[in-house]
Write a protein that binds this DNA or RNA. Sequence first.
DNA 1: GACTTGATTTCGGAG
DNA 2: CTCCGAAGTCAAGTC
Lengths: 248, 248
Amino acid sequence: MTVTSVHDPSHREALWELEDAFERGDLISVFGRCTVSYEGRAASDLGAGDRLLVLKPDGAALVHTDEGRQPVNWQPPGSEHHAAVRGGQLRVRSTRTNPDETLTVRFERVHHLSAMAVTGGRDLTLHGSEEDLRTRILERPELVEPGFEPRETERPSSAGPMDVFGVDADGTPVVVELKRRRVGPDAVGQLARYVRALKEELGADERDGDDPPTVRGVLVAPSITDRAAERLADRGFDHVALEPTPEE
Amino acid sequence: MTVTSVHDPSHREALWELEDAFERGDLISVFGRCTVSYEGRAASDLGAGDRLLVLKPDGAALVHTDEGRQPVNWQPPGSEHHAAVRGGQLRVRSTRTNPDETLTVRFERVHHLSAMAVTGGRDLTLHGSEEDLRTRILERPELVEPGFEPRETERPSSAGPMDVFGVDADGTPVVVELKRRRVGPDAVGQLARYVRALKEELGADERDGDDPPTVRGVLVAPSITDRAAERLADRGFDHVALEPTPEE
DNA sequence: GACTTGATTTCGGAG
DNA sequence: CTCCGAAGTCAAGTC
């Protein structure tokens, strides 16, 4: 592991260091005053200001200001970085194809540049995802409702794969839609599509009426918005309040 | 503008610099070997490895590896940064409430730390957004279809505001849903909700049948997926292929 | 490749 | 504050 670092370099010095760092496959951090322009899926321009430019060996480029989790401008992985001195500025350009897009950062002044080779240690273990919620339900189906029996996960349908498919205590088919957090109306629409697709597939009676539905829909989520609850009630579906992980 | 930079500092040195930088409201970049743990909306752990930690004065914290546009771990703006030396490690912790979540980065070694005061120059001008598409249609309604007359944008409905509301050459109400890029089935569902809400509001005949629909739905997007086209046809809606900006 | 969906989505706007 | 939908969403898995 070696760190390169230059303070207040000339454009030409910065250029050398950048090209060496590209060559080594380093992770690069550049502080400086720059303008940024992007052209591709959309187009944008950003006037002069102090920012942090991060360049990754996989082609990703990030321009960060002092605010926000999101970079103000960026280029996705798979791009190629190029640097040059043009018109008294240090120009760093990241380009990719499919779609064609280019990010150009023009430094009028580089305050600091550092670079480091980075390898390994990229595996993140994450708990509390939707998959954890599915696991939890498969292990304890009664959390959905007494008598619920899961039959299949990711069951295919014409509307796409449904999260969990099973039957209730009466043997009625149940489509379960899982969400790891509070949901809005869109989740109800998604559930409705699965239920409709399954009804069609099973040749079930599609009439609305006093007859109990032949396919049930259950939305499992920690909580739902009022509008989602309305739409859920309209469709005759149920909500089960459940966290992706047991309460501490 | 001043840049602070320390190379291979001791934990205590790094701590001093960090606390000064917090005080100054600097944008901070730290290279080092660290472990990362997160607990909040979910929970995660990341083993030892070389990474780049970015700390922003607005409370945002980003842990970047050598790959990907996304940070491997992060904390949103509004958090508070704290640093301390504990157990022979430099511990940087970002905490926020609502929801309660904490990101902890433990450095066993800091390779490089730099910090810079950053102000201003945060305004990005972006072209090619959905709003540009709306503007384009309002200026040239015939791009939707000959005789189309926009009447209102963001027209409220019980299903939320619709992008563009207008009437066609026959005076039939038209709900227009705008998407700046290729869309899937979800957009059709969204459009359907608006159309349904408007039909109810207008007290229009909701029967499906051979009667022409009393409210039309038009999806304006550069292109749509096959499944979206199916659902569009099911509902009797139309697709108009249009880019958010004129072709170059 | 296109397509679909989840995400610690983030972000901005409206109520 | 909550709710809602856009985003240059990104990223992963499937087909």
